[in-house]
Amino acid sequence: MASPILRIENVSKRYGKKDVLKGASLTVHKGDLKILIGPSGAGKSTLLQCINFLVKPDEGRIWLEDQEVHYAHKRNLYAYRQKVGMIFQDFNLFDHLNALENVRIGMVKVKGMAKAEAGERAVMELERVGLKDHMQKYPAQLSGGQKQRVSIARALAMDPKVMLLDEPTSALDPELIGEVHAVIRDLGNNGMTMIMATHQIGFASSLASEIIFMEDGQILERGTPEKIFFQAENARTKEFCSKITELYGETR
């Protein structure tokens, strides 16, 4: 088997006396879509943020394409983050920039690309997420679904090897979830490697290569969607899956 694109070993994080993450390990191959599920407070966001060091793990090691990431080495860290796209629950667009500028700014300020060239690429990425007609709009003028799609375009423009998505649709009205799911599905079909935390299990099971169930800072069980949703071994996994199916049902 080809070597993994991303490898996470024994990542731990504590806040004060509380162990929020207790040694999580994960191996991700090119084209994988790993879905993190688990109750609120399980540590899904913390794990995702540890992966690109927005939260500094207390322990653990991370390799991207067989290169270990030394986050204390700033240059190494900034170079690594360019290759790991992050999508947030509440979009986090830059409020003073319009959609086009939001997508362009990383290429210009971080990668040092020329403005014109970066602008062309930004237009391309915005077209890809279906926002060709909204490029001049500011975040305050966009709907939630549109904002999230801009943020996906912004991450894609950096040519990431891996995308981390932290509940990308849970701040959206139900009728806007579909448009964001369509974009993510499209990414998956084009071979993007992704790790996504979500409660939308219908969507997740139709797309995931592996479902990872987390609780209390630990990975309790992992496997194919069929295994986790229908033949879970762990009682907690079963309980959580039946609860969440009731809540979110079978989604598109």
Binding site: L54, Y78, A79, G106, K109, V110, S151
Partner: peptide
């Protein structure tokens, strides 16, 4: 966080 995740110093 978004800026950092894009690789901004």
């Amino acid at each position: 966080l978004a800026a950092q995740s894009l690789g901004f110093n």
